[in-house]
Design a binder for these strands. Structure first.
Lengths: 210, 210
DNA sequence: TGCCTTTCGCTACGGGTCGTAGCGTAATGG
DNA sequence: CCATTACGCTACGACCCGTAGCGAAAGGCA
């Protein structure tokens, strides 16, 4: 929501219109659905939002940053209720993440901004803090719960803990993204069942053999 | 290499310059390294290649198709020598794939064209046939070898076989891509060892419990 | 050799997007 | 009331796109 060029606690002057913020982000998502990433233009978003083009540039430096903010809020919906078992938790979060990737806004925008981020460090940081970290927290929660249930051993070495967390996250998120966007095949119950079986079995084997 | 609008066996007239083909693809890769995907322009590629801009458009309809062809040849290097064990094979192919993703050409181009392909079916098909299938074959080879060694059981159900192959491919390729481009952390020996341990253990568990 | 066909380099063009500057106006706080 | 900031609007140069039109080059074929 907050832009990079946010006036640090500007006490005086006319305040930024929060309605304009919301309208712009909403218009950006609508444009992503209708046009996709490549054909989305700043002028078109401004027109849809009923806002002058200069107002967009006062908040976001370029198209990339705008789209990240517009899509990031969709990731707020992600949650991980305790379903009683590691396997059930994995299946739930995978299906939820897949549903998010099926939406045309995220489908066309996520890969594009990640591609741009390979040459734009501030953009990468913005993606990390507003999207990636939000997903990764689910992994940490799931692992912690599994340990409380006794399904996974409690690792004492902090280095191993962090490495394993990162591995699990990259495997789950990467597999889902690759399945949905590269292989372009559905993330259905059957596939999710196979993935979770692979993960649960693999985590057990890894924990058993240090 | 061959463009979409290739003249089917044109017997008469001046033939296409193969030197121009090579120069254009080479210039495209150079432009990707220097400028990245978003700042790469057709006119710049033409200038680098010492070729008229119209010559590019005679071969490729747009930037996307050109970049796919320019990057696809890099995937020809991928190979999978028999290293004696499933785990060694996995580690080798993962490191090889990661090295490919570390190159600036592929790093900036792969995600971009995949993002574009979500709204461009012909482009998706081109990516699939010239890049994805080339990687997937390595997975099939590795699985077949592991079965010959007795490391994995020989599954009789063709539906299960295809589903498992697809799962393994999405997990491996997805995890590496996610690690390298989203998490932006190195695919080093330690990480690869953890991933292969997870996979080998998981595949064993999946095979044991149908 | 002469003819036909296709590709080549080159120039030029209309159309579109970018990102900014400048202006007058609107909305706050002191 | 005044300083300050945001807003809408217009206009602008710069850039890139993708195509058309031209004459010249390089092949096949009789």
């Amino acid at each position: 929501m907050c832009s990079r060029t946010s006036p640090r606690t500007s006490r005086t002057g006319r305040p930024r219109s929060t309605e304009a913020d919301a309208a712009i982000l909403e218009a950006t998502r609508a444009a992503l659905v209708e046009l996709g990433w490549s054909k989305l233009t700043m002028g078109d978003v401004a027109t849809r939002a009923g806002v002058a083009k200069t107002t967009l540039y006062r908040r976001w430096a370029n198209k990339n940053e705008l789209v990240v903010d517009a899509v990031a809020v969709l990731f707020d919906e992600l949650e991980l209720p305790d379903l009683g078992s590691l396997r059930a938790d994995i299946e739930y979060v995978v299906l939820q993440f897949a549903a998010l990737l099926e939406r045309p806004e995220t489908k066309t925008a996520l890969m594009a901004v990640v591609a741009e981020s390979t040459r734009d460090e501030p953009l990468r940081e913005r993606i990390r803090s507003s999207i990636v970290e939000r997903q990764k927290r689910l992994v940490l929660d799931g692992r912690r719960r599994a340990q409380l249930r006794g399904e996974l051993p409690v690792d004492r070495d902090p280095v191993t803990v962090e490495a394993t967390d990162g591995l699990i996250f990259d495997v789950i998120a990467g597999a889902v993204v690759h399945r949905a966007l590269v292989s372009a095949e559905p993330v259905d119950g059957d596939w999710v069942a196979r993935l979770s079986a692979l993960l649960v079995g693999g985590l057990g084997a890894v924990a058993a053999a240090p």
